[in-house]
Simulated assay, not measured.
Amino acid sequence: MARIIVAGGGIGGLAAALSVERQGHDVVVLERRRAFEELGAGIQLGPNAFWALDRLGVGADVRDKAVFIDELRFMDGTSGECVARMPLTESYRARFGNPYVVVHRGDLYEPLLRACRAASRVELVTGASVVGYTQDAGGVTVALADGTSVTGDALVGADGIRSAVRAQLVGDGEPRVSGHTIYRSVIPMEKVPEDLRWNTVTLWAGPRWHFVHYAIGGGRYLNLAATRDDEATTAVAGEPVERAHVLSEFPGLGDTTRRLLELGEEWRTWVLCDRDPVGNWTDGRVALLGDAAHPMLQYAAQGACMALEDAVVLGGLLDCDADSIAPRLEKYAAERHDRTARAQLVAREMGTRLYHPAGAEAKARNTMLAAFSETDLYDKVDWLHGFSPSGGLTDGAVR
Results as ranks from 00 to 15, higher is better:
347 A>R: 03
108 L>R: 07
170 V>S: 06
66 A>D: 03
227 T>Q: 03
141 T>Y: 02
186 V>Y: 00
302 Q>E: 13
33 R>Y: 11
19 S>Y: 00
122 V>L: 05
209 W>E: 04
31 E>Q: 11
368 M>V: 06
42 G>A: 07
316 G>Y: 14
159 D>T: 10
342 R>K: 14
357 P>A: 10
118 A>W: 04
227 T>D: 05
144 L>E: 12
265 E>Y: 09
100 Y>T: 01
215 A>Q: 10
7 A>Y: 03
327 P>R: 05
187 I>F: 05
374 E>L: 02
154 A>C: 09
346 V>R: 10
103 V>L: 13
395 D>A: 15
318 L>R: 08
85 R>Q: 11
373 S>M: 08
280 N>A: 15
22 R>F: 01
97 G>W: 01
102 V>R: 06
90 E>N: 06
264 G>A: 09
81 E>F: 04
43 I>C: 00
317 L>P: 03
69 I>Y: 07
154 A>T: 11
222 L>K: 06
192 V>C: 03
332 Y>F: 15
55 R>Q: 14
237 A>M: 11
248 S>Y: 06
294 H>P: 06
285 R>G: 02
58 V>F: 02
375 T>N: 04
344 Q>I: 15
365 R>Y: 09
374 E>D: 15
246 V>G: 01
185 S>M: 10
376 D>C: 08
225 A>M: 10
18 L>E: 00
80 G>S: 04
135 Q>V: 12
350 M>H: 10
17 A>R: 00
399 R>G: 11
363 K>I: 09
238 G>V: 11
117 R>W: 08
72 L>E: 10
155 L>M: 12
17 A>K: 02
219 G>T: 06
300 A>G: 04
257 T>G: 14
123 E>A: 15
296 M>L: 14
31 E>K: 07
227 T>L: 15
367 T>N: 07
339 R>M: 03
39 L>V: 15
368 M>L: 15
352 T>Y: 14
310 D>F: 09
177 V>T: 14
52 A>G: 04
375 T>C: 00
220 R>H: 13
377 L>N: 04
243 R>K: 15
105 R>F: 13
60 A>N: 11
136 D>C: 09
252 G>K: 07
104 H>V: 01
252 G>C: 11
256 T>A: 14
336 R>W: 12
49 A>G: 08
67 V>Q: 09
349 E>G: 11
